[in-house]
Design a protein around this nucleic acid. Structure first.
Length: 493
RNA sequence: GGCGCAUUCGUCUAGUGGUCAAGGACACCUCCCUCUCAAGGAGGAGAUCGGGGGUUCGAAUCCCCCAUGCGCUACCA
């Protein structure tokens, strides 16, 4: 059993689920599924001050949305629980006491103020900042005196003063750190909570984690963790540090680069399967050409060997393209189902609810290949739903028409269209094409005019089909309105 | 400042000593299709592989130095 692959995603509930973070979750999940191992979720809620309400829920929602199911963790339990570190406090205490007893850790009474001052002084003198180990060798009397002052100590790890710590990272390769560059980091805070370093190491061991796949930013902490594993007499897991995801300016991806929370992408109408595919390719590749892969194909092919060592910039344009590809791959019924919630919440309240499924069903074939996100679909094609789109009368004229000609064309169109037996796309095309040549207008000019009149936009789905879906009444009404708009602002132009 | 990691088209990447005068994708440009926009099709432009030294018959691939970027350097994770 010890040989089986067990990986974990260990988020800290201090905010929204960042896409970089979720990518880490994805890689862990893919690795577990590929190896037939277990994917565990563990909540690292050891920083009471930074906890954010609802963060756990939104992290779990993000995982669920992407279909990253976990074998052990919140809600599903498991034999290594509990899976919230705040519920494991009783586990860390005795372990840290043992460390103190064995001489691997010590009590530190230094105040935050002193530490702050010390760091300031160190940077001023251009020395590497780090704890100066003042409490590492306290005499019994000194310790007793500090205890009497009522100071609650923290517990620090007694980092070896010399030697070096090396390990073989599965992605970066052999990495070595001199122990002298590491300071005596805190294991147990004065509020009784463990730090990340302690809790993470203890829990990874207790939960029999075989591989730690985490972001690159942890690489520098790994020697501390290895030292801790050794002091504890635990076998360290294998480490694999994932490249980071950066914003367009190469700095750490953050708010100013746009959406960073996975829930924002969900809200904007990105498809989870597209998101999974896109995220998987940020730092991993199958070969020199395969890009579109289903979840099953990703699981089947994923491996650590092909994870890149260099950080990747999040390219929204490519995500948009890929999302469009996935939208086009959907069956019309599937797209209908996925689009409805966006229409219900995105369309103005003036549009009657519930929105008619049958009506949307007719629109789907016209918009499917034009959408990159579901949310964008609502914005681009709202003219199918609202009463009268608003637009600048100038748009009716395009580049070539004048007001007179346009009004005339609209008038005749109104006539012909109201006399049409059947308002279907073929009949519309027949009538309008004929009219176009009668008027001596190029189809581009004339259809452009009608397009703006009926949709309020210069770019829309194919005109005749669009008009057929809109229906006679609405089209005629909008053409009348267009005529009004032309005359209203005409003269003073 | 110290330590660590990285460095191939604008971006994601392929590439592990010769088949690379570097391949694919997004984005960009042109053309075709066409009532617009998309989608689709056909092309194009775009990287002297961060720079400099080696090693070798031969280097994007190996070694060294430099530069740059990023990360860490908390009683945050």
């Amino acid at each position: 059993m010890r040989d089986s692959v067990r990986v974990r995603y260990a988020p800290s509930p201090t905010g929204f689920p960042h896409v970089g973070n979720i990518r880490t979750a994805l890689f862990n999940w893919l690795f577990a599924r590929n190896m037939g191992g277990s994917f565990i979720v563990r909540i690292e809620d050891t920083d009471v001050a930074r906890m954010v309400d609802g963060a756990v829920e939104s992290i779990l929602d993000g995982l669920r949305w992407l279909g990253l199911d976990w074998d052990e963790g919140p809600e599903v339990g498991g034999e290594y629980g509990p899976y919230f570190q705040s519920q494991r406090l009783g586990i860390y205490q005795p372990i840290v006491q043992r460390l103190v007893r064995d001489g691997h850790a010590y009590l530190c009474y230094c105040s935050p103020e002193r530490l702050e001052e010390m760091r300031l002084e160190q940077t001023r003198r251009k020395e590497p900042p780090g704890y100066d180990r003042r409490c590492r060798s306290l005499s019994n009397e000194e310790r007793a005196r500090l205890e009497d002052e009522g100071i609650t100590p923290v517990i620090r790890f007694k980092t070896p003063l010399d030697g070096e710590t090396r390990f073989n990272d599965l992605i970066k390769g052999e990495v070595a750190f001199k122990n002298s560059t590491l300071d005596d980091f805190v294991l147990l805070k004065s509020d009784g909570y463990p730090t990340y370093h302690l809790a993470n190491v203890v829990d990874d061991h207790l939960m029999a984690i075989s591989h730690v796949l985490r972001a690159d930013e942890w690489l520098a902490s790994t020697p501390r963790h290895i030292l801790l594993y050794n002091a504890l007499g635990f076998e360290p897991p294998q480490f694999a540090h994932l490249p980071m995801i950066l914003g367009s300016d190469r700095s750490k991806l953050s708010k100013r680069h746009g959406a960073v929370s996975i829930t924002e992408y969900q809200d904007q109408g990105y498809l989870p399967e597209a998101m999974v595919n896109f995220l998987a390719l940020l730092g991993w590749s199958l070969d020199d050409r395969t890009e579109l892969m289903s979840r099953e194909e990703l699981v089947k092919n994923f491996n650590l060997e092909r994870i890149s060592r260099t950080s990747a910039i999040f390219d929204l344009k490519k995500l948009d393209w890929m999302n469009g590809v996935y939208i086009r791959q959907l069956s019309q019924d599937e797209l209908l189902e996925r689009l409805m919630p966006f229409l219900e919440s995105g369309l103005p309240t003036s549009v009657e609810r519930p929105i008619s499924l049958d009506y949307v069903r007719k629109i789907i074939p016209l918009v499917q290949e034009r959408m990159r996100t579901l949310g964008e679909g609502v914005e681009l094609y709202d003219f199918f739903f609202i009463n009268q789109p608003d637009y600048d009368a100038e748009l009716l004229l395009g580049k070539t028409l004048d007001r007179e000609r346009a009004s005339g064309a609209l008038g005749i169109s109104l006539d012909r269209l109201s006399g049409l037996d059947s308002f279907d796309s073929e009949s519309l095309e027949g009538v309008l094409r004929l009219l176009s040549s009668e008027l001596g207008l190029k189809t581009g000019e004339f259809f452009g005019l009608i397009r703006v009149a009926t949709t309020g936009r210069i770019a829309a789905p194919p005109l005749f089909q669009t008009m057929a879906v809109l229906g006679r009444e609405r089209c005629l009404g909008r053409i009348e309105e267009a005529t009004r708009r032309l005359s209203r602002r005409g003269p003073e132009q």
